[in-house]
């Protein structure tokens, strides 16, 4: 009996620890890094590991982030978000560390204090704003629908088809919502671990359409014969950088760097490098 009680207590402790971990209150670590570059405010900012800026992202989302064939821009990765993160880290005087994981995991990583910053073609939503802090928009995310060439799928009958999405994306959330909430319902939507798998399922014919961000969609269509993007966009959204809820110092510093890059044209140059202007 005593043993059982001890076991139960141990279980309870583990559970409450986990609860603390996920409640979003990151332990204030003793370290602080001061940004040296002019332009960034000289505030004390808190990071998970002293001297490091840990980026959570999902590197299967070209052209925002992807695994490079060679050295890439940073640690073998490249993409718009990777370049932005590199500059941000540099200006903050921190060493960038890229943690590549599933998109849904990356959303949790920042809240749970495993990563400092989230750049993953992340769309701003009100629900996400409750658990994370967002910068202003740095790019426009257009969600489009990829279908097979010559298929009968249109924006109007999409809800009757089987739609592939990437788990955790706004595309998945909107599409899998119940019909009365404007979605297609779970039965018409499949969630894959990443966009590439969803597109593979489309190529295989396992789904009729894939809802995904425009930029990666163009790359997937270019890479796979017989795919095309429906002319009308499914939804337009704002891509923002996120940090853990309440980490105002870091948010302000990142926002300042972002403003600066927007002002001097660095941002546009980076985006233009990956996305050919229409």
């Amino acid at each position: 009996m005593k043993k059982l009680l001890t076991l139960a207590l141990a279980m309870l402790m583990v559970l409450s620890l986990a609860a603390c971990g996920s409640s979003g209150t990151t332990e204030p670590s003793a370290n602080s890094a001061t940004s040296t570059e002019e332009g960034a405010e000289a505030t004390d900012i808190t990071t998970v590991e002293p001297g490091k800026l840990i980026l959570a992202t999902n590197c299967q989302f070209p052209p925002y982030e992807m695994v490079a064939d060679g050295e890439g821009v940073y640690q073998g990765y490249e993409g718009i978000d990777i370049e932005l993160a590199t500059i941000i880290a540099e200006k903050l005087g921190l060493e960038l560390q890229i943690d590549d994981m599933d998109f849904d995991s990356s959303l949790l990583a920042v809240q749970e204090g495993r990563s400092d910053i989230l750049l993953a073609g992340l769309t701003y939503t009100e629900e996400r704003d409750e658990v994370m802090d967002f910068t202003t928009k740095y790019a426009t995310g257009v969600q489009v629908v990829i279908v097979k060439e010559g298929s009968d799928v249109t924006m109007d009958n999409l809800g009757e088809k089987l739609v592939g999405t990437q788990r955790g994306t706004t595309g998945y959330q909107y599409a899998s919502a119940a019909p009365e909430d404007g979605g297609f319902g779970e039965d018409h939507v499949l969630a894959y671990d990443n966009g590439a798998t969803a597109v593979q399922a489309l190529v295989n014919g396992q789904v009729d359409a894939v809802i995904i961000d425009e930029a990666p969609a163009e790359q997937y269509v270019a890479a796979n014969d017989g795919l095309t993007i429906l002319p009308t966009a499914w939804v337009e959204e704002d891509y923002c950088i996120a940090v853990d809820e309440g980490n105002t110092a870091l948010l302000d510093a990142v926002q300042a760097i972002l403003d600066e890059m927007q002002a001097d044209g660095t941002l546009d140059a980076i985006i233009a490098k990956y996305i050919s202007a229409d």
Binding site: L107, E127, Y172, S176
Partner: peptide, 15 residues
Amino acid sequence: KSIVTKTYEAMYPYV
């Protein structure tokens, strides 16, 4: 996993 992506909270769904 789907519920986690909607609630942004991993503990309860996985437990």
